[in-house]
């Protein structure tokens, strides 16, 4: 159901961090693919590895294992994780990232113009200065920044404006894929809506592919075509958005959905409380990682890790009891 051709194929990504003799499996064996022009959402609690996954894909981290097959604009298929630094530079232009915190992700000592220009300087050092500035102006106007203020420093801008600067910086190289890591979480709701609308428009205009990482389920539901749910470094469920939200097949997804606050006092959902907390990823439980908190847990779950498999077309689940359980999701109007 991906919109266009497969642009990104993430295969068995694994990321381990070592610290003081302890190995933390931040991301364990995650695979999925993203089509061109598609928005793929990734949700999960803090510490589930969603940010690490995003960073592995742009190769900000060097994953322990796995491959990120990327179909470049010229049409050749490359493994983004295997290419050497020089080649990578050429492709990195095409995969950009927008960060969570609009305050710490902008250098306070650079003017906004310089911030947006920096990627151009790094990638096209020979580009004439006028052209560079023209490009910056164009993109700044596109994301809704007032171009007369570009000589100012980030501190003079509000949170929403700063996030627009971050978006402009990511867009100035005409990327094809953008990894948005919690890019609206730090914003107020009314500003959040503005930024989401902006992302939507830009996506349509430039045929962008988004990997949208967030813990906010209603934002993800709004913006994504397909959604993956992560728990303790693993993908536990993956499906087209509406399917996932109306008919979840993994118990974790079910309780995650039930915990979403609904802005209507008459339509409060029955909460399915999760017992306890997310286990320590350095010492994950045996069997299914979720069995310690799962209310459908059986003997088998505590012994054997479930396989991540296709249950229905486009619907992947890692749960022993996915077939028999009838889980509750949101009711859709139509």
């Amino acid at each position: 159901m991906s919109k266009g051709d497969k642009i990104l194929d993430v295969q068995n990504i694994k990321m381990d961090f070592h610290s003081k003799g302890v190995t933390v499996h931040a991301v364990g064996d995650v695979s999925f693919s993203v089509g061109e022009g598609e928005t793929m959402g990734i949700v999960g609690e803090s510490g589930c590895g969603k940010t690490t996954l995003g960073r592995c894909i742009v190769r900000a981290y060097e994953p322990t294992a796995g491959a990120v097959m990327y179909k470049s604009s010229e049409g050749d298929l490359i493994d983004f994780l295997k290419i050497d630094k020089k080649t990578m530079k050429a492709y990195r232009k095409e995969i950009q990232m927008i960060f969570q915190d609009p305050y710490s992700s902008l250098d306070p000592r650079m003017t906004v113009l310089d911030i947006i220009k920096e990627p151009l300087l790094a990638n096209f050092p020979k580009m004439p200065k006028e052209e560079m500035e023209r490009k910056v102006m164009d993109i700044a106007a596109k994301v809704g920044l007032n171009t007369t203020y570009l000589k100012r420093y980030p501190h003079a801008f509000s949170g929403g404006q700063r996030q627009r600067i971050g978006i402009a910086r990511a867009l100035v190289l005409n990327p094809r894929v953008i990894v948005c890591d919690e890019c609206v979480s730090a914003l107020d709701v009314s500003i959040q809506a503005q930024v989401i609308n902006l992302l939507h428009e830009l996506q349509k205009e430039f045929n962008l592919t988004f990997l949208f990482i967030s813990h906010d389920l209603s934002v993800v539901e709004y913006i994504s075509d397909r959604v993956g749910v992560m728990y303790l470094g693993k993908m536990v469920e993956f499906a087209p958005t509406k399917k996932l939200f109306s008919h979840p097949m993994h118990p974790y997804t079910e309780s995650l959905l039930s915990a979403v606050p609904v802005a209507d006092p008459t339509k409060q959902m029955e909460r399915i409380p999760l017992q306890g907390e997310i286990p320590n990823p350095a010492n994950p439980p045996k069997g299914c990682y979720f069995h310690t908190r799962c209310r459908y847990c059986t003997e088998k779950c505590s012994q054997e890790a479930p396989e991540y498999k296709k249950m229905e077309p486009e619907h992947f689940v890692a749960c022993h009891r996915a077939e028999e359980l009838k889980l509750k999701g949101f009711d859709y109007d139509d």
Binding site: V189, S190, A193, S218, F330
Partner: peptide
């Protein structure tokens, strides 16, 4: 404010 929050399940 209410309008800018997307409600899951609505079109």
């Amino acid at each position: 404010l209410l309008g800018s929050v997307h409600k899951i399940g609505t079109k």
